Simulated scan of single mutants.
Amino acid sequence: MINFILILIGVVLNAIAQLLLKKGMVLVGKLSFDIQTIIGLLPSIIKNIYIWSGIGSYVISLLVWLIVLSRVQVSYAYPFLSLGYIIAAIIGYYYLGESLSVYKISGICVICLGVIILSRG
């Protein structure tokens, strides 16, 4: 049970990291492959609390994931990462105002079914 909880903590932290980074970049603006644009936006990126929080969440999720991988088979743990899609879609809808279409909801249901099947194997 503790391994399952650790997996969920890692997945949630990873999804939160993505959402924090997205929020940070919404505030910074669009980046391009133009070096001058990147250099111009670099101070905004460095000062952005959402970006730093996202990076911090990634680091913590990595540490949790290392613990997970030391305890369970990767073939068991890895499929749970797909739950991050669900978390990101739902929080993105409510927090970032992103769309949640019938296709996305259908995909989320398929992912849930797949994770349930894999977790029982």
Rank of each mutant, 00 (worst) to 15 (best):
C109S: 11
G10M: 11
S61Q: 10
G56C: 04
W65E: 14
Q73V: 06
I51P: 15
I60K: 02
V115E: 08
F4Q: 06
I116E: 04
L20H: 12
L13Q: 02
F80P: 09
G24E: 01
I91H: 09
T37G: 08
V28N: 07
S101F: 07
L83S: 12
S57L: 08
L66P: 01
S82M: 13
S99G: 05
I60S: 06
V12H: 13
A15W: 00
V102D: 07
I5A: 12
V64I: 11
I105A: 05
W52K: 11
I38R: 09
I67Q: 09
K23L: 13
C109G: 09
I90H: 04
S101Y: 05
M1I: 02
G40A: 03
I55T: 01
S101C: 08
I91L: 15
S70N: 14
I9N: 04
N14D: 05
L66E: 05
F4W: 03
L13W: 00
L13C: 13
S57K: 10
R71F: 00
D34W: 15
L6F: 15
A15P: 01
G121C: 15
L42S: 09
I51K: 12
I38C: 08
Y95M: 10
I46M: 10
V72I: 10
S53Y: 14
T37A: 15
M1D: 03
I35S: 12
I60E: 04
M25Y: 15
V74D: 07
I55A: 05
V28P: 00
K47W: 02
K30M: 08
A77Y: 09
V11S: 06
L96Y: 06
K22C: 04
V28G: 04
I7F: 04
I91R: 03
L83H: 06
I90T: 10
Y103Q: 11
F4R: 04
V26T: 07
N14H: 07
D34E: 11
S32G: 12
L19P: 01
R120S: 11
Y95S: 08
K47V: 06
R71Y: 00
I87C: 10
L62E: 03
L42D: 03
V102P: 01
G54V: 00
L41Q: 12
F33V: 01
F4P: 01
I87E: 14
V115K: 02
I60M: 06
L42G: 03
